[in-house]
Write a protein that binds this DNA or RNA. Structure first.
Length: 309
DNA sequence: AAGGTGGACAACCGCTGCGTG
DNA sequence: ACACGCAGCGGTTGTCCACCT
């Protein structure tokens, strides 16, 4: 496709946008709305492709665009989200109000470049390993019947989907116990004594007002919305392990930190299993094998972290 | 001061999925 | 069921600019 059919019919300008072009586009869209993008350049008096107008508006001219560098909180969120959804920049952008997919993508690519230059960076894994890993992440989401169709439509792994790193942040865990399970709530309360639980901790990046899981701006096609309603029912609670809540100044989480988190999670899971006997209801992004996950053993849990640990 | 280099950002290209006739 | 128009997405490329030698 490349240039749109509409652009083949007339001469279109390429390259950087001039201030005059920006002004024309802003005036037109704020006055009339974009409607059909194909008609925008013609009606706005621009010699641009409609697609180019759309991109310019969405990525640069939109009034709600947040300019400037990423905050540490945003960086942290991007890293976590990338561990969950991979290179789904648009999904990530929905969790970061004011940020565009293009911006996040550029930021991530720059970040990767930096990391690749560092010999201490975690080793990369083969594409097959990565695909397997991501497949697990999405299969975990499939574990919830109401979301099955959604996941099939939006999150099936495509062959071209790859992440450069294995997810170094598999630290999202959900308690899928029944909402009316009082005992489970008690256990959550106990766990809260030892771990920050997003649903009840104001310090957690995942539970703050800016949390992607509680963000009202999220639409029905974004991953975190899958989790939100369940959190609201107190039957699926994202748990953030405190020992990895802080990264160093370069945005890295150390191996030691991940190891520590693994231990913390295992303690919590074993505690949970001891109270629930054979029906553990913890689900990891990283390990759940689908609808039969209730059969998941602690061995599965213990192996749920990156192989380089 | 001039040229080279790399990072950050903007924009383009090509593909995919959805809605509609 | 199919083709077409369209929007959206992710990968890639181009451009600018600061920094270094």
């Amino acid at each position: 496709m490349g240039h749109h059919y509409c652009c083949k019919q007339r001469k279109v300008k390429k390259g950087l946008w001039s201030p005059e072009e920006d002004e024309k586009l802003i005036i037109y869209i704020t006055t009339y709305g974009h409607g059909c993008w194909r008609k925008v350049p013609e009606q706005a008096g621009l010699q641009r492709c409609g697609k180019s107008c759309r991109l310019r508006w969405l990525n640069y001219l939109r009034p709600d665009i947040k300019r400037g560098g990423f905050t540490p909180e945003e960086e942290k969120l991007i890293i976590r989200l990338h561990g969950v959804v991979g290179n789904r920049w648009a999904h990530m952008a929905k969790c970061l109000p004011g940020r565009t997919d293009n911006e996040i993508k550029n930021y991530w690519n720059s970040w990767i470049k930096k990391k690749l230059e560092k010999p201490s960076s975690p080793p990369t894994t083969s594409p097959s390993t990565i695909d397997h890993h991501q497949q697990h992440n999405y299969q975990m989401v499939c574990n919830f019947p109401n979301q099955q169709d959604f996941v099939n439509r939006n999150f099936m792994i495509k062959p071209r989907d790859q992440t450069l790193y294995p997810s170094p942040f598999p630290l999202l865990m959900f308690d899928a116990a029944s909402a009316d399970d009082i005992q489970a709530n008690n256990i959550n309360a106990q766990a809260a004594e030892h771990f920050p639980i997003a649903a009840s901790s104001s310090s957690s990046s995942l539970s703050s007002s800016a949390s992607p899981f509680t963000n009202n701006n999220m639409d029905a096609h974004s991953l975190p919305a899958l989790v939100g309603p369940a959190i609201g029912n107190n039957n699926m609670v994202p748990i953030e392990v405190e020992s990895c809540s802080n990264m160093n100044k370069e945005g890295e989480i150390s191996i030691e930190c991940l190891q520590s988190s693994t231990q913390e999670l295992n303690v919590l899971v074993h505690s949970r299993q001891a109270q629930h006997c054979s029906s553990s209801s913890f689900h990891f992004w990283d390990t759940v094998e689908g609808p039969s996950s209730s059969k998941m053993s602690s061995a599965n849990i213990l192996s749920s972290f990156p192989s380089y640990l």
